[in-house]
């Protein structure tokens, strides 16, 4: 009796299974076969950007923290060991990028423990840009009070003057590729809660990162009022990029653009020093001149000088 019943029970689900089984999508080693493929066919495009992030040796802690912040903000990046910054660094970096199978690279080069240069390059044969970085604020600063999901895809906003000149357009394209997290990246999260700002002010690119805080009631629909009430809280980091040069190749090649207004920080410092340096020499010079002057036009002896002396 017992056996029989069991048998009949087992039969029923099996029958159900047969009904549902054909609907199951086919699986391959790399994931589900059907649906994504269809989508890809529609757009014919998939963003497979990977960014290598490294820095030079003897980098400042502040700049290192900036780099780490960027690493935490870009889920599609790979951080690598420090690289010795010498003349042949371009070749080694290219090799490294290839080794890590990345398609672009952010290289933080610190010189003299105070000047930070950022190389942004498309590998293996895209253009590369060298920036001078200043006005750096890291995420650790307590004044920056925002916070957002690690790995959520950022919205990129550009100021309209990026469309003014060819080199700005090129930079914009590079920035969208490097800073935008690829869609459906495995480390990315499905929501959007932060926004990047790239704005050109005074021929510098200013970067800001804001958290989007929006009062909502769980549902994904927000009305007009919700949009009005939306506020942004800064998360950091902050920095300001001053483009110095654009090269044709990755970490080298012909120069395509050169910033005509650029003055290197070394020059600025030397100029300052020179302004300060002349002080003592000037004083000595003035003294000798005075002496010479006194020698040439001597005072006539005063005839009444010892009138009251006796």
């Amino acid at each position: 009796m017992g056996k029989k019943r069991k048998h009949s029970e087992a039969e029923l689900p099996a029958a159900k299974k047969e009904e549902t089984a054909p609907e199951r999508p086919k699986r391959t080693l790399l994931g589900w076969k059907d649906k994504p493929e269809n989508e890809q066919e529609l757009t014919g495009f998939r963003n497979r950007e990977k960014v290598l992030v490294t820095c030079s040796r003897r980098i400042n802690y502040r700049y290192r923290h900036l780099m780490l912040n960027l690493v935490s903000v870009l889920p599609h990046c790979k951080k690598d060991n420090k690289v010795e910054s010498k003349a042949t660094k371009g070749a080694t970096l290219n090799e490294l990028v290839e080794l890590k199978s990345c398609s672009s690279c952010l290289f933080f080069e610190c010189r003299k423990h105070k000047d930070l240069y950022l190389w942004m390059s498309k590998c293996p044969n895209g253009p590369s840009v060298k920036f001078l970085v200043n006005a750096v604020h890291t995420m650790e600063e307590l004044k920056l009070t925002g916070n957002h999901l690690k790995g959520s895809r950022p919205l990129l906003t550009f100021s309209s003057n990026f469309d003014k000149d060819p080199h700005w357009i090129l930079l914009k394209e590079m920035i969208t590729q490097i800073f935008g997290t690829p869609k459906e990246h495995r480390k990315s999260k499905p929501y959007h809660d932060h926004v990047f700002v790239f704005s050109i002010v005074d021929d510098h690119i200013w970067f800001r990162n804001y958290q989007i805080s929006c009062p909502h009631t769980g549902a994904d629909k927000i009305d007009r009022g919700g949009l009005e009430k939306m506020t942004l809280i800064e998360v950091g980091p902050r920095f300001c990029l001053n483009p110095i040069k654009i090269f044709g190749g990755s970490f080298g090649g012909p120069t395509l653009y050169e910033n005509p207004f650029y003055v290197s920080p070394n020059q600025i410092r030397s100029l300052e020093k020179r302004q300060k340096a002349g002080k003592y020499a000037k004083k000595v010079k003035a003294k000798t001149r005075r002496k010479a002057h006194e020698m040439t036009n001597q005072l006539e002896t005063d005839e009444f000088a010892d009138m009251w002396k006796e």
């Binding site: 757009t43 495009f45 895809r153 919205l155 990129l156 906003t157 550009f158 969208t176 869609k183």
Partner: peptide
């Protein structure tokens, strides 16, 4: 390319 890939916006200053 679909905007979803880029997520970039141009804002007038």
């Amino acid at each position: 390319v679909d905007w979803m890939h880029k997520l970039s916006l141009d804002i007038d200053q």
